[in-house]
Design a protein around this nucleic acid. Structure first.
Length: 550
RNA sequence: GGCCCGGUGGUCAAGAGGCCUAAGACACCGCCCUUUCACGGCGGUAACACGAGUUCGAAUCUCGUCCGGGUCACCA
């Protein structure tokens, strides 16, 4: 054994498999030409983040549009930051938003696929096998520096105004001998394994980012950590080994990774792997006191995807919104294909924006209203009750007490050719439809300024006598028009506009009075439909109450 | 500070040297339609960060300045 081989045995004595073993275990995927293999690799450190959902969507649609594979892999190499139930939160969140997972973690506990395990903490032996091979080749070495020593080096570098980091002459253990290492290990000193970088800061590496285009950066000359002292790899090393073994073709991730690309490409080369294509996704930003910043889970409620569920934004609407952010031509496509799943959209990574977009809830509202307006009353009923069941028990009880009635409420101005665009999210529905449910109805009989109370009462009394709940829209309005002249109002709006001084108002004003009487508000969907759904008895009751309250 | 990336209306953006007198969407405003509010239709306000070059010609190419973002861990 030469000294490198001795070192390898010294550092990782329990590793007996070879890299060939794993290369054979995970053969190339049998996929059609052009199929892209993508993944997201979240760490279970908290709730599903909007940025993660966004990245998942981009990866999912990239795989879908090429008949490829999209898989999940859990990056839990940092046990300190891990939280209970983190995996479940993320995977369930993805499922909730309709992001289908071909392989990897498909639920909080269940993995599927031939390239597993899909959790890095379960892959320690694999990483160590590759590290051992690197040590054997003299491409990696143990470093015994303590945090304090590293800090001291850094301070010194700052004082000398030179580039900080563990590189070149600052890399204390870069040329450590087997004997020295053995002595330290015998003393029980902990160590990490570092890459013996062959990079030179003066040289440039150039790579083609599938989203951002050509990027040029200095080569990595830092002897960065491959294996932490607990034997678990750093992200960089795990990324190289996993994405090679799992045959990822496209690594599409947040652009905070862009500065690590030189390290990653270097690793792929040294390990003899073919590097994947990289695409770096710009973050979703938030305006904070006039300054743009990356949306943050701590500061922004909408950064946690949970927010959208609570608010009752339909998952498809959120996805559609995210698609408009991801692809500038998606909106046009959506207009041309209003009823097609976004999955059929021809997605192109090059069309993605290179700078971060501000999260725009107003735009989300618009996208949502458009889609919600196209749902049938039955679909709205199903979605809204599902939402209420989870987030508003009282509303759920009210909605489900009489499902047929509730559906007829949702059908107003909805199951028609030009549906009403009203609600964007389910949490608005309780207030929006409150006047349709006795338990929620609190009338407010405030008349518009141009109508006096006596006229309103006269009108309502007159209307009560002729009201017929079998009327269709035209008949319904004709009755109002018929009453108008009897109390000094114009039957036609045009009449009134032509001679405003001759009338107190017009039939439209009177319909407003009726609207206030029946629903307690000035703006509602079609009143005739509302009255039909409410039923004769309820309408009469409300009109009487209004007459007495005015 | 070093290294990257970016900068077109309030927001998202189209734009690949002449088609730009700069698209479209959201938001906002006005008008029309109209039983209210919406919807829909029509119209409107509003932008190439700045400065030098290259060129017959620059939003587009180059350089500089400024501004914004990212990153410089035994975190991912």
């Amino acid at each position: 054994m030469n000294s490198n081989e001795l070192m390898a045995e010294l550092l990782l004595p329990n590793i007996t498999k070879t890299t060939d073993y794993y290369e054979n275990l995970y053969p190339a995927r049998n996929l059609p030409e052009g199929a892209r293999v993508t993944r997201i690799a979240p760490s279970p450190t908290g709730y599903l983040h909007l940025g993660t959902l966004f990245a998942a969507l981009v990866n999912r649609i990239t795989a879908t549009s090429t008949n490829g594979i999209f898989y999940t892999r859990i990056e839990d190499t940092d046990k300190k930051r891990e939280i209970e139930g983190g995996i479940e939160d993320i995977i369930d969140g993805l499922n909730r938003f309709g992001i289908t997972i071909d392989e990897g973690f498909v639920s909080g506990t269940e993995q599927k696929g031939e390239y597993g395990p899909y959790q890095q903490s379960q892959r320690a032996e694999i990483y160590q096998t590759y590290v051992k091979e690197l040590i054997r080749q003299g491409l990696a070495y143990p470093c015994f520096c303590t945090a304090e020593e590293l800090e001291a080096v850094r301070t010194e570098q700052e004082a000398q105004k030179v580039r900080t980091g563990y590189h070149g002459k600052w890399a204390k253990h870069r040329d450590i001998s087997y004997e020295e290492a053995k002595a330290l290990i015998d003393e029980g000193k902990p160590f990490v394994v570092r890459l013996k970088s062959n990079g030179n800061e003066e040289n440039k590496i150039i790579f083609e980012d599938t989203i951002k285009g050509k990027i040029e950066m200095p080569e990595n000359d830092e002897d960065f950590v491959l294996l932490k002292s607990d034997g678990i790899p750093t992200y960089h090393f795990a990324h190289a080994v996993d994405d090679h073994l799992m045959h990822t073709t496209h690594v599409l991730r947040g652009d905070e990774w862009i500065s690590s690309v030189p390290k990653h490409i270097q690793l792929f080369k040294i390990l003899g792997f073919k590097p994947p294509k990289y695409g770096h996704i710009s973050p979703i930003m938030k305006l904070d006191n006039g300054a743009k910043r990356k949306i943050s889970k701590r500061k922004d409620p909408e950064a946690a995807v949970h927010f959208f569920a609570e608010q009752g934004y339909d998952s498809e609407c959120v996805i559609d919104y995210l698609m408009t952010v991801a692809a500038s031509d998606f909106e046009d496509w959506r207009r041309a294909n209003p009823d097609t799943s976004y999955k059929a959209f021809k997605f192109n990574l090059k069309k993605m924006s290179v700078s971060g977009a501000l999260f725009d809830e107003v735009k989300l509202t618009d996208v949502s209203k458009n889609r919600v307006s196209k749902l049938s009353s039955g679909e709205v009923y199903d979605k809204i009750t599902a939402w209420a069941k989870e987030f508003d028990g009282e509303f759920y009880e009210i909605l489900t007490k009489n499902p047929e009635y509730t559906k007829s409420v949702f059908a107003i101005d909805r199951d028609v050719p030009k549906p009403r665009k009203d609600i964007a999210k389910w949490s608005e529905a309780k207030e929006y439809f409150s006047y349709m449910f006795g338990e929620l109805y609190t009338p407010n009989f405030t008349l518009p300024e141009n109508i006096n109370t006596e006229d309103a009462k006269d009108f309502l009394n007159a209307y009560k006598d002729v009201y017929d709940d079998k009327d269709d829209r035209q008949q319904w309005f004709d009755r109002i028009k018929a009453i108008a002249p009897t109390i000094g109002f114009a039957s036609e709006t045009k009449q009134y506009k032509a001679e405003p001084e001759s009338y107190k108002g017009h039939a439209g004003d009177l319909s407003t009075v009726l609207r206030i009487g029946v629903t307690g508000r000035r703006n509602t969907p079609d009143l005739c439909s509302i009255m039909q759904v409410l039923g004769r008895d309820e309408c009469i009751k409300r009109i009487d109450t209004a007459i007495n309250s005015l």
